[in-house]
Design a protein around this nucleic acid. Sequence first.
DNA 1: GCCAACGTTGGC
DNA 2: GCCAACGTTGGC
Length: 156
Amino acid sequence: MNYWLMKSEPEVFGITDLKLRGTDAWDGVRNYQARNFMKDMKKGDLAFFYHSNCKPPGIAGLMEVVREAYPDHTARDQGSPYFDPRSSPKNPIWSMVDVKFVCAFSQLITLETLREQGEALNDLLLLRKGNRLSVMPVDKKAAEHIMHGLAGYKTT
DNA sequence: GCCAACGTTGGC
DNA sequence: GCCAACGTTGGC
């Protein structure tokens, strides 16, 4: 089982939206590196839901991958902001996964808090300078530190 | 609103 | 294949 982190702007789609929907398709990823990470996701993997471009930014909750990568049909929808004319049925180019709401953390784990963790989160790509990836892997050590050390999340 | 960092595009 | 120009991300 692997851990991931996925960014979304809460004004567009936040953790409360996912909670309401239960399960949703993570569409609109238009970056090759992020897409490739999504293709590596397996059913049962856990992903942190990160709120970006807001005050304050941070990790808002947890979700689970319930369907592995399949074509992102919004790329072929002319009315969609994610429309990409290069996408075709034979070569959809872009992928998405389905994610299920697991929990919203009682308190947002802010970016500032994450930066204060020092060694425990040294390898977290999110904290690397200039990082703009919207989908990224999180190693087990960092993931457990965030879940158990910061979120107080208990696995059943 | 600013701007650093990064990805993409397209001329050559 | 290089690289300048441009667009986007996202923290501040």
